[in-house]
C-alpha cells in the first residue's frame, strides 16, 4: 500500500508557544522526529536520520512534513482578523486513526448522547438536511447550512439556541468549523481540529480556536474545548475497526452522515489512506 499522497501534506507537530531549544521528541507517520525552537525564534524539525524537514509556523502551531509539500499550508483568513481571541488548547493523545478523529469532528448527530446538555440534548436529536460539496477551486470538502439545537453552544452562550455550522476539510487530517458566534451575530467563531498522525492508529490532536469573546477568561475557553474533546475521546478509542473503513459496505451512513460520506470519498479519490482501511477484513 502506498501512502505517498499524504506524505506531502503539512501536519501540526507542536505548539509554538510551548517549544524551546530542548527538542520535543515526537513522531510523524511512524517516523521519529524532533521539534525545537532555536534561540533566535526559528522553528526546526529534524527527522530521526538527521534530515531537516520543511517547517512553517501558523495558527499557534509548528507544522512540518516528511515529504515535499506542493503548496502552502491552507489559509484561514479569520485567523488574522482583528479582535479575535486565539486559543491554544494543547495536545491530547488518542489511540485511534487520525481520519476517525477528523470524521468525528464533522459529525453533529452524536451531540445529544456524547456532549449531553452542552452541544445537544434529547429530544432535540433530529439532523435537518444540509448541503455538502467538494469545492473544486480549493479542493476542499465543505458542509454548509448545518443547523442543530444546542443547550450551551459556547462558553459565552447562556441558554439553548439553534446553532448554525459550516465545516471545511482543507487537508486530510485538519478540519475547520465555523460556528454561530453568540456575542457577534453576522460573524463566525472558528474552531479547528489539527491532527498529527503518529501512526495509522495513534494521533496527537491539537484543537485551536479563533473566537470573538472578550468576556470569558482564556483558561475557561481552553477548559470548555478540552471538555468537549475529552468526551469524544472515549468514543474514538472504542470504534471497531480502529482504522477508518473506506469500503462502503463496512458501515451504514444515513442522510445525517453526508459530510462523512463526502470526506471518505474525497480521501479515497486522493489516495489519502494513511489511517484508512481499504478492504473489509
Amino acid at each position: 500500500m502506498t501512502h505517498d499522497a499524504m506524505i506531502d501534506e503539512w501536519y501540526p507537530v507542536g505548539l509554538f508557544s510551548q517549544l524551546d531549544t530542548n527538542a520535543r521528541k515526537t513522531a510523524l507517520m511512524g517516523r521519529p522526529i524532533e521539534v525545537a525552537v532555536e534561540a533566535e525564534g526559528h522553528a526546526r524539525v529534524t527527522s530521526g536520520d538527521g534530515r531537516s524537514l520543511p517547517v512553517c509556523v501558523r495558527y499557534g502551531h509548528v507544522w512540518s512534513s516528511l515529504g515535499k509539500p506542493q503548496k502552502d499550508l491552507f489559509a484561514i483568513p479569520e485567523a488574522d482578523q482583528p479582535g479575535r481571541t486565539l486559543v491554544d488548547v494543547g495536545v491530547i493523545r488518542v489511540r485511534c486513526s487520525p481520519l476517525r478523529a477528523v470524521e468525528n469532528f464533522l459529525d453533529i448527530a452524536h451531540f445529544p448522547f456524547v456532549h449531553t446538555d452542552i452541544l445537544g440534548a434529547e429530544p432535540h436529536t433530529e439532523v435537518q438536511d444540509y448541503k455538502v460539496e467538494v469545492r473544486q477551486d480549493a479542493d476542499e470538502v465543505w458542509a454548509t447550512q448545518v443547523k442543530f439545537y444546542q443547550p450551551q453552544a459556547a462558553k459565552s452562550a447562556s441558554g439553548g439556541i439553534t446553532t448554525e455550522y459550516m465545516y471545511r476539510v482543507p487537508a486530510p487530517t485538519c478540519c475547520v468549523l465555523y460556528k454561530t458566534c453568540p456575542p457577534r451575530p453576522g460573524e463566525w467563531d472558528v474552531i479547528t481540529l489539527f491532527v498529527q498522525p503518529l501512526a495509522e492508529d495513534l494521533c496527537d490532536v491539537w484543537p485551536w480556536m479563533a473566537l470573538f469573546d472578550d468576556a470569558t477568561p482564556m483558561t475557561d475557553l481552553i477548559h470548555f474545548q478540552q471538555t468537549i474533546f475529552l468526551q469524544d475521546r472515549s468514543i474514538l478509542e472504542n470504534q471497531i475497526p480502529r482504522l477508518l473503513p473506506l469500503d462502503p459496505g463496512m458501515e451504514i451512513p444515513t442522510r445525517a452522515d453526508l459530510t462523512s460520506v463526502a470526506y471518505r470519498r474525497w480521501l479515497k479519490r486522493h489516495n489519502y489512506t494513511y489511517g484508512a482501511q481499504l478492504v473489509a477484513q
Binding site: 468514543i235 472504542n238 470504534q239 471497531i240 475497526p241 473503513p245 463496512m250 458501515e251 451504514i252 451512513p253
Partner: peptide, 10 residues
C-alpha cells in the same frame, strides 16, 4: 455483536 453497524462503536 459488540459493534454498532453505523460507525463501529462498541
Amino acid at each position: 455483536a459488540d459493534r454498532c453497524p453505523h460507525r463501529g462503536m462498541r
